[in-house]
Amino acid sequence: MPPRQAIFPASRHALYDIHRYSAATRSGDLLFVSGQVGSRADGSPEPDFACQVRRAFANLRAVLAAAGCGLDDIVDVTTFHTDPARQIDTVLAVRAEEIGAPPYPNWTAIGVTWLAGFDFEIKVVARIPEQASAA
């Protein structure tokens, strides 16, 4: 098996360096994306919750694109929410805009008490398309 490969988007935000982690790790034809939050380029949270969720998805798209993937390549999603009961309608609305039509990926939502100043985080596993795997 080939060694794992760190993947970073071109618009790399400060959190990767501050907390010392890779945006994603490629292993074979799978991409394991670290939790993406609604951070600005300097690593600070987007203050409006809906905008924070949208920015988290934008950061996710950038990481996927860096590996030759898109949202359609996602097979498994885990989301983390600081106040699931109050946030779920907003998250589901943004998710519907972002994920699109069936078949949908697996999805697990988890309520948490802390996300380092953020209120939403999304972590995924994606399959890298064959044409991107050959690159």
Rank of each mutant, 00 (worst) to 15 (best):
M1E: 12
P3F: 10
P3D: 11
R4H: 13
Q5K: 10
Q5I: 13
I7Y: 10
P9D: 03
P9Q: 03
R12G: 05
R12K: 11
H13I: 10
A14C: 00
L15P: 00
Y16C: 09
Y16G: 06
D17T: 11
I18E: 10
I18H: 10
H19N: 10
R20C: 11
R20M: 11
S22E: 14
A23S: 11
A23D: 06
T25C: 06
S27H: 15
D29W: 12
D29C: 10
L31W: 12
L31V: 07
L31Y: 09
G35Q: 07
G35F: 11
Q36R: 12
Q36L: 06
V37K: 07
V37R: 15
V37M: 12
V37I: 11
S39D: 15
S39R: 03
R40T: 03
A41M: 07
A41E: 11
D42K: 00
S44G: 07
S44A: 13
P45I: 04
P45K: 04
P45L: 08
E46S: 08
E46K: 02
E46G: 05
F49K: 01
A50P: 06
C51L: 14
C51P: 00
Q52I: 01
Q52W: 06
Q52G: 12
R55G: 08
A56L: 09
A56Y: 09
A56D: 09
A56H: 07
A58S: 13
L60K: 01
R61W: 11
A62W: 05
V63L: 07
L64N: 05
A65F: 14
A66H: 08
A66P: 10
A66Q: 09
G68R: 07
C69P: 04
G70K: 00
L71V: 15
L71S: 07
L71I: 15
L71W: 03
D72R: 15
D72S: 14
D73F: 05
D73R: 01
V75N: 04
V75W: 07
V75C: 09
V75G: 14
V77G: 03
T78D: 12
T79L: 03
F80W: 13
F80V: 00
H81M: 08
H81K: 01
T82P: 00
T82M: 00
D83Y: 02
P84Q: 09
A85G: 06
A85L: 08
R86V: 02
Q87S: 09
Q87C: 04
I88T: 08
D89P: 00
T90M: 05
V91E: 02
L92E: 07
V94N: 04
V94L: 06
R95D: 14
E97Q: 13
E98H: 12
E98T: 09
I99N: 01
G100T: 04
G100D: 08
A101R: 07
A101E: 12
P102E: 09
P102F: 06
P103H: 05
Y104T: 06
P105R: 00
P105E: 03
T108P: 02
A109F: 10
I110M: 05
V112D: 04
V112S: 02
T113N: 15
T113K: 10
L115K: 00
A116C: 13
D119K: 03
D119Y: 08
F120I: 01
F120P: 02
E121R: 01
I122E: 09
V124F: 11
V125T: 13
V125G: 05
A126T: 01
R127A: 14
I128L: 03
P129D: 13
P129S: 11
E130Q: 08
E130D: 14
Q131A: 15
A132F: 08
A132I: 06
A135L: 14
A135M: 13
